[in-house]
Simulated scan of single mutants.
Amino acid sequence: MADTKLDIAFWDYDRTRPLVDGTVKIDGVDGKFHSAPIVTEIFRGMIADGSFDVSELGFTYFLRTFKNGESPFVAIPVFPNRAFRHSAIFINKASGIETPQDLNGKTIGELALYGHDAGIMPKGMLMHEFGFKPETCKWVIGGLDWPLKPIDFVPHTHSANVQVTDIAKGKELGAMLEAGEIDALISADVPKCMLEHSPKVGRLFPNFREVESDYYKHTGIFPIMHTVVVRRDLLAKHPELSQFIYKGFCDAKKTAQEKYKHGLIFNSMGTMFPWFSQLVEEDLAVLGEDWWPYGIEANRKSIDAVLRYHHEQGITDRLFKIEDIFLPEFLTT
């Protein structure tokens, strides 16, 4: 029987590269792999254009495709993008923001849309741990330091009592932060003024690595940004593909992990970063041997947090459960 031809899209990650270069094969699949310089263009291709059969999707983009409790896509518990996000909160140093509580009442910029994946998690963390109230703030949504296509392929939902406006034409959030036109910025990407070490800007948590490590230790949450989804109509015809796809992504990630562990023998000479081996060992000490887990059980706290924060922030009109978004055969993974 011939392999099923599938168009599969994701960004250029070390944990997916073995699929692209052929090191890892997906059983029963003749895959054509796609990517894009900006990951939201992959999301657009899946949601708006129907270009792919299997695709990485930002969790918030996926949840916004649900109508009347159902999405045209079904998730498998593969999480190609995850990141601690205390480091994603930037401030203008003249804004008077010294503590997380000082964000209340401020004007805050956010990249792309209110509740982008790197905005959901820090807002939720700030609300639960520091008493942050998004409804007290003015929110400005837009591009960072470059032109950004409008995110017009998913609903822009938020709580009714939250004030959200689009950025003025010709403006960029990075420049507005440095100029003090906004007090703070939440962004998946680092603004140019930070990369250029402007003295006018900084992070809310300057010691973010220590703070994020402590956050993981007391919550067990390694924040998930993106998952992998499959077209529901495809699985109706070929239900066996879900397991093959899941195993392929798992094998590719395992290949990348083994490469890093093997590299410790040779002091990680394959990278250009001094002390990289020490970083790998430190991450293993905090996060465990499988420091980037796929499957449900190892990620239950992180998935529950994503779903809860979406509902609390008015992005989804219901509190989704894990069973609502993942195929039943993966609930025990």
Rank of each mutant, 00 (worst) to 15 (best):
G270F: 12
P223K: 06
L284C: 11
L279G: 12
A88K: 08
L111R: 09
E297G: 11
P223C: 05
I47E: 05
H262D: 15
M225H: 13
Y61F: 15
D166W: 07
E135A: 06
T165Y: 04
F326I: 07
N68D: 15
S302F: 12
N104R: 06
L19W: 00
I42E: 07
G263W: 04
R203Q: 11
V29I: 02
I322C: 03
E172L: 11
W139N: 11
L177F: 04
F249K: 05
L144Y: 02
R203V: 11
V54Y: 02
L6H: 02
G143W: 00
D214P: 04
F208W: 07
G263V: 08
H218M: 12
R82C: 06
S268W: 11
A112K: 04
G180P: 03
F52L: 05
H238N: 14
Q101K: 08
V78S: 03
P191D: 09
F66M: 04
W275H: 13
N299D: 08
H197D: 15
K261V: 15
G124D: 01
F132L: 05
E196I: 14
K169C: 11
A160L: 10
Q278H: 12
P37T: 12
L284I: 14
S213W: 04
V190F: 13
L279W: 12
Y294W: 12
L113P: 01
G295Q: 02
I224G: 06
T107D: 10
I224D: 00
L148G: 01
D30W: 09
V24C: 03
R15M: 14
A118N: 02
W292I: 15
P80A: 03
A175R: 01
G22A: 06
Q257L: 13
I108C: 02
A94K: 09
C250D: 10
Q243W: 13
G170P: 02
I151Y: 02
T65A: 01
A94E: 07
V228C: 06
A118K: 00
V228M: 04
F244N: 14
G314L: 01
Q163T: 15
G115F: 07
F59T: 15
G314H: 00
A285F: 03
E240I: 03
